[in-house]
């Protein structure tokens, strides 16, 4: 009882990376709290999936398997989680900050009257002293995220309400299978007990999912552009350099909002978190939400006309200059000096 439960989501029949990442984080938190790590998997044709979850140190896997549970719709998944959580009373509930998690999380938190913090960039365990009531809360979940305006980081807690719920974007936590594989316990839920027919009021008529998506997360090199790039046309320079040196193109939120490039390329708290070998930030000033998504890059180069751009502080190299001048020079040198 009072364990950590991760809602594991399916992405076209496979367990999503974000779920493995959350289990990896959950494993550590469970170690600190001396409680068990649970995974909840809801979908169809799930036999054998539990083994993948045990690879991340899951102690208990709950499976809800029914044809009607795939693909995801709001009501049935909500009902299963809410009813299961009422029985098992986890102290912490985690899910991905994906279209599914962001549809499901608030619905679940509202039904359970528990707090939910979106898009956390770190999760820790710690105590809290309520000065007014002189009450001490032990071992709360610190839900840490950049807050409004971006140059502050807020630590959010839910002292009185369980489960403490949080969503985390894909790529923020590291996916770390455990070295000592242990077969945990699997519990197959009696789906009928958790659902009724009214849960299927919303029907999926049609779905088109694109197979190949832009995947900047695993690219070793990212050439990323901000508002300072100036236009979608200028972004082509970034694409030229990226394809030449074997990288992908990323972007800041400002560049995406301005329509310079695809939202799938957005790096940062509300986009993708990346840890490439090389991150070339072009015309990116470096709001905290952006830095949070790329600060662990091994080498950071900032190309900027503003010598005081905040990103320069975390850059290994700052090139003071215009994109239109600097990038063609990089391209030229690379072409001339590699085979």
């Amino acid at each position: 009882m009072n364990n950590i439960c991760v809602y594991c989501e399916l992405d076209e029949g496979k367990i999503a990376d974000v779920s493995f990442e959350l289990l990896s984080k959950g494993r550590k938190l469970a170690g600190q709290l001396d409680c068990k790590l649970e995974a909840l998997l809801i979908g169809h044709n799930l036999s054998g999936f539990e083994k993948q979850l045990f690879q991340y140190g899951t102690d208990i896997v709950y499976i809800a398997d029914d044809k009607r549970l795939s693909p995801y719709t709001t009501f049935p998944h909500t009902s299963i989680i809410v009813n299961l959580f009422r029985e098992t009373k986890p102290q912490i509930g985690l899910m991905g900050a994906t279209t599914i998690g962001r549809d499901l999380g608030p619905r679940v938190s509202s039904a359970l009257a528990s707090g939910l913090t979106a898009d956390c960039t770190e999760l820790e365990i710690g105590d809290h002293e309520e000065k007014k009531s002189n009450k001490i809360y032990k071992n709360l979940l610190y839900q840490i995220r950049p807050a409004f305006g971006g140059n502050i980081i807020a630590t959010i807690i839910n002292p009185e309400h369980k489960p403490q719920m949080a969503t985390v974007r894909e790529g923020v936590m590291k996916k770390e299978p455990v070295t000592d594989y242990r077969e945990g316990k699997m519990i197959i839920l009696d789906v009928k007990k958790y659902l009724d027919d009214t849960d299927f009021a919303v029907k999926i008529i049609d779905r088109h999912i694109e197979k190949s998506r832009i995947n900047i997360k695993n690219s070793p090199v990212i050439v990323s552009g901000g508002y300072g790039v100036g236009s979608a046309d200028n972004f082509n320079l970034l694409f030229d350099l990226a394809s030449l040196i074997g990288g992908e193109v990323g972007a800041s939120r400002a560049a995406v909002d301005a329509g310079f490039t695809d939202r799938a390329r957005q790096v940062g708290q509300t986009g993708v978190t990346v840890r490439p070998k090389l991150y070339i930030a072009c015309g990116i000033s470096g709001q905290i939400q952006h830095l949070a998504g790329m600060q662990e890059s091994k080498i950071i180069i900032s190309v900027n006309t503003d010598p005081n751009a905040p990103i320069n502080k975390i850059a290994n190299y700052v090139i003071h200059g215009r994109i239109e001048t600097v990038l063609p020079k990089m391209i030229k040198y690379y072409k001339a000096n590699t085979k």
Partner: peptide
């Protein structure tokens, strides 16, 4: 249910930064 326990100004690990201009030799050596 959610309370803000604290807010911190962020301090990112600042790095030893090498600053350069957009001159050919600077970019080429990098």
């Amino acid at each position: 249910p959610t309370k803000v326990k604290k807010v911190d100004s962020i301090s990112f690990q600042t790095k030893e930064t090498k600053t350069m201009n957009d001159k050919d030799e600077d970019i080429n050596s990098l």
